[in-house]
């Protein structure tokens, strides 16, 4: 598990770094070189999808997602633990039904139909593959949470 966490963090740092450099490059090629790059806009948008999906998994892991704590606020002990089962269960259902199944279908479909992106002309299946991938990660995190106890990593730095 620690290895998955670490790997995900490194990947996110890398993607964010690339995204900054990519957009700076876009401005530079247009304004300084007068020869605008045709790819940077598309790269930035695709990186955004990857960061949104994978970052969403990381954010779940560290408990950064927004929620409504009116009920959970008042629960203690066994009741809190039962609620955790429901929460993790809902997350796992979403991960499996939407991200893995729906996202997987989307990947298979775009792959089968040889659909490419407009500028880079890479397969859209590659771009969309992040959806089932993050579904798998979210599933892992949800199961891990149930096995090792809730909120282990949560609220590490809320101050």
């Amino acid at each position: 598990m620690a290895m998955i966490d670490r790997g995900l963090q490194y990947l996110l740092i890398l993607l964010m770094g690339i995204m900054v450099v990519n957009v700076l490059w876009q401005v530079a090629t247009r304004f300084l070189l007068g020869d605008p790059s045709s790819y940077t806009e598309e790269i930035a948008r695709f990186l955004l999808i990857w960061i949104g999906m994978l970052g969403g998994c990381h954010a779940y892991r560290v408990g950064a997602h927004l929620g409504l704590d009116i009920l959970s606020h008042h629960l203690q002990g066994a009741a809190r633990w039962r609620l955790q089962w429901i929460i993790s269960g809902a997350v796992i259902i979403f991960a499996v039904a939407v991200l893995i199944y729906g996202g997987g279908t989307l990947v298979l479909l775009t792959n089968e139909l040889h659909q490419t992106s407009a500028s880079l002309e890479i397969s859209m299946a590659v771009i969309y593959s992040v959806i089932p991938l993050s579904g798998a990660l979210l599933c892992c995190f949800g199961v891990d949470e149930l096995l090792t106890g809730p909120n282990i990593h949560r609220h590490a730095d809320t101050n």
Binding site: R30, G34, D35, P36, S38, T40, E41, E42, S119
Partner: peptide
């Protein structure tokens, strides 16, 4: 656009 001498710029 490149062949016509302009600089093709992607803008949403």
């Amino acid at each position: 656009v490149k062949r016509l001498g302009g600089a093709a710029t992607p803008i949403a």
